[in-house]
């Protein structure tokens, strides 16, 4: 880039994504983030526990509608996310690069993220079949077990890869009908905020995914302790912090899944068992007779 450019860049304000809106943090705080590509500093919101609380309210409000949406519709919407991301691949690659990822790797990460979305878009109407069972009970009953979403999932996203890690953790949760409040990578937050814009443009109902930027140390205890959060995804959280979070999670029996040192670029890091992680199995009995 040269100083000969006639026009001044319009810098983006990186905000939170809560309930389908892009508010600034209610706390007014920010974290300054030095772009890795030498283009200066950007400011990212430092979300507060109240932002988290608001996000949980939004996520709870979205559970009924999203979990009742047809599998076909959820698949269409997640596919639409992939389309939107593909269309903005250059922007995301540039942001990842700004976060210090080499250019080629950044482009590859965006492609992998798109492909992961496509992979999971195809799971929405299949995981139920894979995870369900019809149970041949001895009595005269029709008996079957099928997965249902756990509810509101709070996620501490992987530190890296910023975008692919985010997609790999959030998407299986929403494929399964959950809603999510996610705390983006502290070191790679930019693509998370931009991803919210992609979600917003993809017919994902407001509140289904809520993205916060901020500090793990500050927010994790509130995520683990919130009584209206049903599950906790902890990615690359230190042993001590994870232990404390799991203890706090016991208060309302949050389902806790830890993801440590996962190679999110590997094909094996996507599977219906990641969807299953935030599902409850419901068994129904019904008499069979004339």
């Amino acid at each position: 880039m040269s100083g000969e450019r006639a026009r001044l860049d319009v810098a983006k304000t990186y905000k939170l994504y809560i309930g389908g809106k892009f508010p600034r943090t209610e706390s007014g705080r920010y974290a300054s983030f030095e772009r890795g590509d030498g283009a200066g500093a950007v400011n990212v919101c430092r979300a507060s526990r109240k932002d988290f609380r608001n996000a949980v309210v939004a996520a709870r409000g979205a559970v009924a509608g999203w979990s009742a949406a047809s599998a076909y519709l959820r698949g269409q919407i997640i596919y639409r996310i992939a389309e939107m991301l593909e269309g903005r691949a250059a922007q995301f690659a540039s942001e990842l690069h700004a976060e210090g990822v080499a250019e080629a790797a950044a482009a590859a990460q965006v492609e992998a993220s798109v492909d992961r979305l496509i992979h999971y878009a195809g799971w929405t109407d299949k995981y139920t079949q894979v995870l369900s069972s019809v149970n041949p009970v001895a009595s005269s009953h029709f008996n079957f077990s099928l997965p249902e979403p756990t509810g509101v999932v709070a996620a501490v996203l992987p530190e890296r890869p910023g975008l692919l890690g985010l997609v790999s953790v959030i998407v299986p949760a929403i494929v399964g009908g959950n809603t999510v409040v996610a705390l983006a990578s502290e070191s790679h937050p930019l693509s998370a905020v931009s991803f919210a814009e992609v979600l917003h443009a993809s017919d994902v109902p407001g509140g289904v995914v809520n993205l916060l930027t901020g500090q793990r140390d500050e927010l994790l205890s509130h995520m683990a302790g919130h009584m209206d959060v049903n599950a906790l995804a902890l990615c690359d959280v230190s042993a001590d912090a994870a232990t404390a979070a799991e203890k706090a999670a016991a208060e309302n029996f949050k389902r806790v899944r830890r993801f440590d040192d996962v190679d999110w670029s590997a094909d094996a890091s996507a599977s219906p068992w990641h969807i299953e992680a935030f599902q409850e199995i419901k068994t129904t009995w019904h008499p069979v007779a004339n």
Partner: peptide, 8 residues
């Protein structure tokens, strides 16, 4: 009437 219940 539920037949299975009656049988039980």
């Amino acid at each position: 009437v539920d037949t299975v219940g009656v049988e039980e």
